[in-house]
Design a protein around this nucleic acid. Structure first.
Lengths: 137, 137
DNA sequence: GCTAGATTAGTGCATATACACTCGTGTAGC
DNA sequence: GCTACACGAGTGTATATGCACTAATCTAGC
């Protein structure tokens, strides 16, 4: 397989399974942890801002937020004007994130042990560069 | 964002959109092209063999084959015993693959022009290494 | 030959992903 | 103030993804 796109998707499947497995005891998937983490990182982002930050289609984000809202971890509040909505963690969401973080960290450390720290650092840099190069705007 | 898993998924989203856009005139997505291409590459693989090759859950593959079967590009034939099934391209599937290949190649060349050949080669190697390291078997 | 366990594949369910389209809201230009 | 256009968000539809579970088939050991 020489297709770069297919190779990235393949690696994404494998690594997602690795993280998902680690997060399983907490009932979270990698995508969901990533969402909670980035909502916490940004300051009351709108849907569009958060989606741009994650390089995710806005409508995908809307739907990915649904299970987090249903679980009571995320709340949508009125935004700066009547069109926009601010994405915020609930207190339960904040608590969950604090509980998940060390579990995620363990997974990250385990991955580094398996794959090598330098290698992952290089991979990370290349991924960011390629993603940045493909930025449409 | 320091999470390797999230970074890979993010890059996968971006690159998938790039390839999907290129394949759009032919009504195919990257995943589907990748499936057709790998079915052609392997010799009458079973569902499990093809799924293993693609680092994809077997049940995911079963479902991903559905639209290709509906479109008449892929056919499931009886396998070596009565449990297994062989995945094969139909003649229409073979024709389509031949037609799509140059379009994919253009996209690949365009990506190399944007991201740099050496960089993509390094990325590719790292992705394969990391995926290989995570192989559960 | 029987049976227990392994192998192969499909379904139910839930989430992830994004394009096309729609709706409501804001704003610049007049 | 209107109006045309831009902007922010949600829905319809289709595909992608994988875990838990089930069903059929094969095979090793007796």
């Amino acid at each position: 397989m020489r297709c770069t796109g297919a190779a990235i998707r393949r690696a994404a499947r494998r690594t997602s399974q690795f993280y998902d497995d680690a997060l399983k005891p907490l009932g979270l998937k990698l995508t969901q942890y990533s969402l909670l983490s980035n909502i916490d990182l940004l300051d009351r982002p709108t849907i569009t801002e958060l989606a741009d930050h994650l390089v995710m289609d806005r409508t995908t984000l809307t739907r990915n937020l649904t299970p987090l809202r249903v679980s009571g971890w995320v709340h949508l509040e009125p935004g700066a004007d009547r069109r926009s909505r601010a994405v915020v963690l609930t207190s339960r969401g904040t608590d969950l994130l604090a509980a998940v973080k060390p579990v995620w960290q363990q997974a990250e450390v385990a991955l580094r042990a398996k794959a090598g720290d330098a290698r992952l650092r290089k991979l990370r840099r290349l991924l960011d560069e390629v993603a940045s190069v493909l930025d449409p705007q």
